[in-house]
Structure formats: structure tokens, C-alpha cells
């Protein structure tokens, strides 16, 4: 399978990623790392435990790494959740009521992304 197929499944922007990271091997390598990274799991457990600061950081990291690799659907979902969990001045998540639904969207995107990378 090629990177093109993978990004076709994930809904990513391969051309942009290639423009930034310059090297197909490097992209493939970090896609592999992305699957092994446990940030997604950390997001799940911290939200279940209502550990909002950790959940926010996990969403933030996921948003960053997915953007780095041009995995746009996951990035968009993680971005939305991240903003909902971002602490306000009092340290309380800004939009906790939307968190569960946004988390569901992240879950859906992550499953598809996983499937796409798995094609490599």
C-alpha cells in the first residue's frame, strides 16, 4: 500500500505533509509512531476519571500530532474537543457539556485514521 492510499482512507492532505516534512520515509515512520503513541488512550482514561487538565493536554497533543501528519478529520475533531476542554481563567473546562459528544467524534475519526495507517 502507498501513502496515497493511506491518506485516501484517513482523509488527509498528503501533498501538504510532503511539502513540510519533505521525505516519504519520514512520513511513513511517524505515521507508525502515531499508532504506537498512547495519547489517545490517555485522553480516554482521563476523561473517564474526569481529570480535565490531563484530558485537555491529551486532546491538545493529539491535535498537534495529527496536524503534524496532516490527518485532517482527526485533527479537526481533536481541535474541537481541545477547545471544549481548555480551562478558563478559573481552571474549569470551558464547555464540558459538549465534551462527550466531541469525544465521540474524536473516537470515530481515530478509528478511521487507525484503519488508514494500518493499510501501510
Amino acid at each position: 500500500m502507498s501513502l496515497e492510499d493511506c491518506y485516501e482512507v484517513c482523509g488527509g492532505d498528503l501533498a501538504a505533509v510532503r511539502g513540510r516534512l519533505l521525505d516519504d520515509n519520514r512520513i511513513a515512520k511517524y505515521l507508525g509512531f502515531f499508532l504506537q503513541d498512547d495519547t489517545y488512550e490517555l485522553l480516554g482514561t482521563s476523561m473517564a476519571q474526569q481529570d480535565w487538565p490531563t484530558a485537555f493536554r491529551a486532546a491538545h497533543t493529539l491535535k498537534g500530532t495529527s496536524m503534524e501528519l496532516g490527518l485532517l478529520p482527526l485533527h479537526n475533531a481533536a481541535f474541537a474537543l481541545c477547545e471544549a476542554l481548555r480551562p478558563d481563567d478559573a481552571g474549569v473546562p470551558k464547555n464540558l457539556s459538549a465534551a462527550d459528544e466531541l469525544k465521540q467524534q474524536v473516537d470515530d475519526a481515530y478509528v478511521i485514521t487507525q484503519a488508514g495507517i494500518a493499510l501501510l
Partner: peptide, 13 residues
């Protein structure tokens, strides 16, 4: 960086 993947990526770049 708290994310190992980011640290690796930066070194790589």
C-alpha cells in the same frame, strides 16, 4: 516537549 513523538520528529528535522 511532553510528547515523545514531537521530540523525535524535531530531532529528525
Amino acid at each position: 516537549d511532553d510528547n515523545p513523538m514531537n521530540r523525535l520528529l524535531l530531532q529528525d528535522i
